[in-house]
């Protein structure tokens, strides 16, 4: 019985953050949990920041994770993890894709863009544990950059297993992926799920934070 498990997915429009939130929500529903998804996207659906709040448990009613109550932040882009800072606390764990999508202002050098190391340090200062992986590379390996979100789902599955947070089983996750992605991308996505899972398992066994 879970009372409240809050997953925040921070992404840039077009990265598949919203689809990922739906996949996790479907999987949680299959496991018999109450689940609520809230979205903050404003006009920024294309290329702007998107935050999806997935809330699982018997005591959740609102669509937003209250400040500081995020358990797991899945960031599909490093800077988007920083942008989600208000939801984080020392009890939060962050799963981070390393590959960056700098805005045009940063590309042209008009504004500074933090390095991966700076991002991780800033998150560590809040007290969060951070695991990062190159999800884009793994997604390409799986067959398409579009599977980046499902690579991160794989990482989340590995993290839950390691922490014995058995909220969603691999079967439920796979089934939810099947129901949520276009059939021509299904095989690639299932590979992505596995690759993300293995990558995080490996990095968790070799190093922590």
């Amino acid at each position: 019985m879970i009372r409240e498990h809050n997953i925040l997915i921070a992404s840039v429009g077009g990265q598949g953050g919203i689809t990922l939130s739906r996949i996790i929500a479907r999987a949680a529903m299959k496991m018999g949990y109450r689940v609520i998804v809230g979205e903050t996207l404003g006009m920024a659906q294309r290329g702007g920041p998107v935050q999806s709040h997935v809330r699982i448990g018997s005591q959740v009613y609102g669509p937003l994770i209250p400040e500081g109550r995020c358990h797991i932040l899945i960031a599909l882009e490093p800077v988007e993890a920083l942008r989600a800072a208000r939801y984080l606390s020392p009890e939060s764990t962050i799963l981070l894709n390393e590959t960056v999508l700098p805005p045009i202002t940063a590309i042209l050098g008009e504004v500074p863009y933090p390095t991966l190391r700076e991002v991780v340090e800033a998150l560590n200062r809040i007290g969060c544990g951070v695991y990062h992986l190159n999800a884009e590379k793994l997604a390409l390996e799986a067959g398409s950059k579009r599977c980046l979100n499902v690579v991160m789902l794989g990482a989340y599955m590995a993290y839950m297993e390691a922490e014995r947070l058995n909220i969603i089983t691999m079967e439920a996750a796979e089934e939810a992926v099947r129901e949520s992605v276009p059939s021509r991308y299904l095989e690639a996505n299932l590979r992505a799920l596995k690759l993300g899972y293995e990558a995080l398992m490996k990095s968790m066994s070799s190093s922590a934070y």
């Binding site: 294309r46 290329g47 800077v79 800072a85 606390s89 020392p90 805005p103 202002t105 933090p114």
Partner: peptide, 23 residues
């Protein structure tokens, strides 16, 4: 928790704005 709040504010400050681009 003051310390945590400050660290959060600091992290947020490091995130550059994403101007809304045309697709």
């Amino acid at each position: 928790n003051r310390e945590v709040e400050e660290a959060r504010a600091e992290a947020l400050k490091q995130a550059p704005r994403r101007p809304l681009p045309l697709c």
